[in-house]
Computed example of a mutant assay.
Amino acid sequence: MTSVQALTAMLKEMEARIQALGSDMQKIKKQIRLLMEENDKLREELARAYGQAGDSTPARGGLKNLWDLYQQGFHICNVHFGRIRTTECLFCEAFWDREREGGR
């Protein structure tokens, strides 16, 4: 194989890899969009459950709903609200401490 043929073969191989990477990137972007949409919906549901969606009065049972969500592994603090917890969260714990003390 001549050096020109070798370079041509290398270019074709490189082009195929670039196309494959582009395809993978499009799949990842689509998955990210879907996850972001799902995250937005979950945040809206949590906000509604807590009574923050448009009105200033807490929804009936909002604290119980928040506690249930926290027990299911979601953050309920304002720092990470709606994200999945992998460990205990000091901010969420501080929120519960304030609620136990009377909402100060």
Rank of each mutant, 00 (worst) to 15 (best):
N39H: 14
H75R: 04
R33T: 12
Q19N: 13
F91W: 00
S3V: 08
C89D: 02
W67Q: 13
F81R: 06
A6R: 09
T2Y: 03
A16C: 03
H80W: 01
G82F: 03
Q52Y: 01
L42K: 04
L46D: 00
Q5G: 05
G54C: 09
E93R: 11
R60A: 15
G82H: 06
S56W: 07
T2V: 06
I84K: 09
N78E: 11
V4M: 14
M10Y: 06
R60E: 15
E93M: 11
E44C: 04
N78Y: 05
C89H: 00
Y50E: 10
R17A: 09
D24M: 06
V4T: 14
D55R: 11
C92P: 08
T8V: 12
M1Q: 14
L35Q: 13
A16M: 07
Q31R: 14
R43G: 00
A20W: 04
E15R: 13
R104D: 10
L11Q: 10
L21K: 03
A6Q: 13
A9I: 05
T57V: 13
W96N: 04
N65W: 02
L46F: 07
L11G: 09
R43H: 05
I76V: 05
L63F: 15
E45S: 01
R104F: 07
M25P: 02
G62H: 06
T87A: 14
L21T: 00
R104W: 10
T8S: 11
K41T: 00
N39I: 11
K64L: 12
A47G: 13
L46T: 04
K29S: 15
T87I: 14
I32A: 06
G51C: 08
L7S: 10
S56R: 11
G22K: 01
A53T: 14
T8Y: 12
L46I: 09
W67R: 09
R85G: 02
K64Y: 09
Y50F: 13
R104G: 05
L7K: 11
L11E: 13
A53E: 14
Y50V: 05
L90F: 12
F91N: 01
E88S: 10
R100N: 12
Q19M: 13
Y50K: 09
H75W: 06
E15W: 06
V4I: 14
R98W: 07
A16P: 00
D24C: 10
D24G: 12
L63D: 15
Q52R: 04
R43Q: 04
L90I: 14
